[in-house]
């Protein structure tokens, strides 16, 4: 319930009229949105119980490793609710397969559709979504870890919350099933990072400073 309360309201995409190239325009709008989502994510992370008790080095490491996974949980959740085959980055930024292909995000589209299908089949609840997002961050396998015991306690607290929630619903296999989706989330996030780095390096798509700093940390 604490995570549900601290979940930020979804952002809307800002329009961009700096270019006539429609594919480039979509990418500029998307990168601007992701940059603002990152800002929110960092503020949100500080409110996860146990996060602020970690050393600053570990807070940075977890965010640098797990930020894209946490953001994609949100995209997958919004897309799952939308029903169609579009990726819902924001209420006013839904990209279909053709748009993703035209913008160089075909690989990301395919990976995210797989993840969305999996979440949709599981009929995730809002409680599960926010816990999964926090767990993706806590479980980001940052290396090296400054204080392994604190990070472990942070993970244990979230795991316990998930188990308590699922046992209150009398779903004994549910926590395990959710944890088993984390490898696909990791794999999807890696493909997303590669796609944005490729767009920046090879197609010179300008990327905001914070987003670029976080992509560089993954490169």
């Amino acid at each position: 319930s604490h995570l549900l309360l601290t979940e930020p309201a979804p952002l809307a995409a800002n329009q961009d009229d700096s270019t006539n190239d429609s594919s480039l325009r979509i990418l500029l709008i998307l990168c601007d949105l992701l940059n603002r989502e990152l800002l929110l994510l960092i503020g949100w992370a500080k409110q996860i119980p146990g996060f602020s008790g970690l050393s600053l080095v570990d807070q940075m490491s977890l965010l640098q490793s797990g930020w894209m996974e946490a953001l994609l949980v949100g995209v997958a959740w919004r897309s799952q609710g939308a029903g169609g085959d579009e990726l819902v980055f924001a209420g006013n930024l839904c990209l279909d397969e053709a748009q993703c292909r035209a913008t160089g995000l075909a690989d990301l589209y395919e990976a995210l559709r797989h993840l969305i299908a999996k979440y949709r089949a599981m009929k995730l609840s809002p409680e599960e979504v926010v816990t999964l997002k926090a767990m993706a961050l806590a479980n980001s396998d940052a290396d090296p870890v400054d204080c392994p015991d604190s990070v472990q306690r942070f993970q244990d607290g979230l795991h316990e919350a998930l188990q308590d929630y699922e046992s209150s619903r009398r779903e004994q296999h549910r926590a395990g099933r959710l944890l088993m989706t984390l490898p696909l989330l990791r794999q999807t996030a890696d493909r997303a990072v590669q796609a944005f780095l490729r767009l920046h390096r090879h197609r010179h798509v300008p990327i905001h400073k914070l987003l670029l700093e976080m992509l560089d940390a993954k490169a």
Binding site: L39, I42, G43, K46, L56, M60, L63, Q64, E213, A217
Partner: peptide, 14 residues
């Protein structure tokens, strides 16, 4: 932290 100064600053802001 020099390479990741925006993240560092955001985490230190209360």
């Amino acid at each position: 932290t020099e390479r990741h100064k925006i993240l560092h600053r955001l985490l230190q802001d209360s």
